[in-house]
Design a protein around this nucleic acid. Structure first.
Length: 580
DNA sequence: GCCGTTTTCGGCCCGACTGTTTTCAGTCG
């Protein structure tokens, strides 16, 4: 029997995106290309492994997958090859696709440079532009050539996607500056920042103003702007000295709803809405909804936009074209978990390990934020750098927690927890009799994340199956923006977690956001409880909760599915049942 | 290439901005 190649959903998506890139350069009709890109997105967003769906013979039940693409997936999963792609790469050099990453260069220009100037990669493009050889090509000129040189430089200094937390801080500062411009009535984040994606490409910002020209002029002249990418009447985009790009729209207040809806995206969600609008005899744009007779419906709020299409307002976190429009039409949108639902913080550190505050100080901070339950989960030994709690000190820490508990009374329930290290050999850093002394145990991976998939997965499975473990902390161990998580077999992990009834964490720290939205949605689909925690090491960390909440909302989580919302009695009962 | 409470064929979202052009193509979101 031939082994089935192990191709993940995201690898599959990459293959079809590459097909789309090459077809686009080749000059294939745009709708075919869109179909491939849509299929790639569908694979990326799937809450199950494509493998399983393939084995069930249900590929074509995935929206956007038809006969032709299903056959290609079949070939890929059976043989590990795609003859269609192999044939394509013989016609179109793969190195051309790297040129597509240059701003202002799309498939048409790539094809032009390739066919008329023999350019096949970024180096050749740069040489030709510097030598002034591009300006004479049809449709090109001196300005276009300069723009390409600027684009190449921008590409070189572009710093990938921003982690959500950093994007949020930059937005706050830009928002302050924008609100001081005369005539600006409102400032709102848009794009992937407002949708709370874990990383953000460009910052998208919308302002309400009746004098958009003044706003645009002020914006492109902000300090730290190193490049004005575009400067129009209602839209401008700039690049700052730190490599971050931002895009600004300005629309009058009575059109703010359509404009915000448009700027928030996602693009795919917007396409879906516009299709729906057309079916209702309306054309949707950032300016308004237009009837067939040309008359306009103006919307100052997003609620009005969605209502005009017969829909309830869809929260930004859901707007990824992952079935939210269909759910809204059917009246089946989930009632997403909100900040007000969360009463427990279950993953924090005190000065008993590497936290900055005493247990009493942490308790005070938790009370100040309206929390009802706080678990102190200091690191175990085994994670050398942090000076973890030793087995001998567990009773001593218990006495301190009890002392603080008697001081705060019923304002806050304190739990003695542990963040126990999953060691490189797969054992937990504490023996079972030590773990049994805690009210709550989180098991986490911090070290040897680069082990082979089989090894690191088995470590995590071992932790999940330990009857003392209640939560798996930041399951993949990724660090945004650049450090990938461990190469885990998430199917095996989720299956084990579902069987053991262990909760999986959404770590709210913006450098983690782990689980991510797709994995969290898979967990929910399997009935695995989620736990959103800040992993606070200092008081200000407790304010990071909203980032984790954003990820949970993106995974369609309701309050019921997150143990941090459960009343005290229910949480304690759940813990007790697990430990008995 | 996908899809169907107008369709199994003929459609497939909408507009801003830029640069090259005399009315539009390419790129982007």
């Amino acid at each position: 029997m031939t082994p089935i190649p192990n191709i993940s959903n995201s690898q599959l998506a990459q293959v079809f995106n590459q097909v789309a890139d090459l077809l686009e350069i080749k000059g294939e009709i745009i709708y075919k290309i869109l179909a491939y890109r849509k299929a790639a997105d569908a694979f990326n967003d799937l809450d199950r492994n494509v493998h399983d769906i393939w084995q069930e013979g249900k590929l074509q039940e995935i929206p956007g997958i038809g006969k032709a693409i299903a056959e290609k997936v079949d070939e890929l999963l059976t043989t590990g090859h795609l003859s269609f792609l192999e044939k394509l790469t013989k016609e179109v050099p793969v190195s051309l696709t790297e040129i597509l990453r240059v701003p202002d260069i799309g498939p048409k220009k790539v094809a032009l440079f390739w066919k008329q100037a023999g350019i096949t990669n970024l180096d050749e493009l740069a040489s030709a532009a510097k030598a002034g050889k591009l300006r004479s090509l049809p449709g090109m000129g001196e300005k276009s050539e300069q723009k390409i040189l600027a684009g190449l430089e921008a590409l070189a200094r572009r710093s990938g996607r921003l982690p959500l937390g950093k994007a949020w801080l930059i937005y706050q500062s830009l928002s302050d500056q924008l609100s001081k411009i005369p005539g600006v009535e409102k400032v709102e984040s848009a794009g992937s920042l407002r949708r709370r994606r874990d990383t953000v490409g460009d910052l998208d910002i919308l302002v309400a103003s009746r004098q958009p020209d003044i706003v645009m002029d002020a914006f492109v002249n902000f300090p730290d702007v190193v490049r004005v990418v575009g400067h129009g009447d209602t839209k401008s985009s700039v690049e700052f000295s730190n490599g971050v790009s931002a895009q600004l729209w300005a629309h009058p207040p009575e059109r703010f709803g359509t404009a915000l809806q448009y700027a928030t995206g996602s693009k795919e969600h917007n396409v879906r809405l516009r299709e729906l609008a057309l079916k209702r005899g309306l054309s949707l744009s950032e300016h308004s909804l237009t009837r067939t007779d040309g008359s306009e419906i103006l919307c100052s709020t997003e609620e009005e936009v969605y209502a005009a299409l017969g829909l309830p307002w869809i929260p930004p976190e859901l707007r990824e074209d992952r079935g939210e429009v269909q759910a809204a039409l059917a009246g089946e949108l989930p009632l997403l978990i909100g900040m007000e639902d969360i009463i427990a913080e279950l993953h924090t550190h005190s000065n008993w390990s590497d936290g900055k505050l005493t247990i009493e100080e942490m308790a005070g901070e938790a009370i100040r934020r309206g929390l009802k339950i706080l678990a102190i989960t200091d690191h175990s030994t085994g994670l050398g750098i942090t000076g973890g709690l030793s087995v001998e000190k567990i009773p001593q820490q218990r006495r301190e927690i009890e002392a603080v508990q008697s001081k705060v009374g019923n304002k806050l329930l304190l739990l003695q927890g542990s963040e126990v290290e999953i060691m490189a050999n797969g054992e937990l850093a504490f023996p079972d009799e030590a773990l049994s002394q805690f009210d709550l145990v989180i098991a986490s991976l911090h070290i040897s994340l680069r082990q082979p998939s089989e090894k690191v997965t088995s470590r995590l499975l071992n932790a999940i199956r330990n009857p003392h473990v209640d939560i798996i902390g930041h399951p993949t161990g990724r660090l945004l923006p650049d450090r990938e998580g461990a190469d885990l077999d998430m199917d095996a992990v989720f299956q084990a977690a579902a069987e053991a009834g262990v909760a999986m964490e959404i770590n709210a720290h913006p450098s983690r956001l782990d689980l991510d939205d797709i994995n969290a949605r898979r967990a929910i689909a399997l009935g695995i409880p989620l736990s959103i925690n800040t992993d606070a090491h200092a008081s200000s960390d407790l304010d990071l909760l909203h980032f984790g909440l954003g990820i949970a909302r993106r995974s369609w989580a309701t309050a019921e599915q997150v143990i941090n919302t459960w009343p005290k009695e229910r949480l304690l009962k759940w813990l007790k049942a697990r430990h008995s």
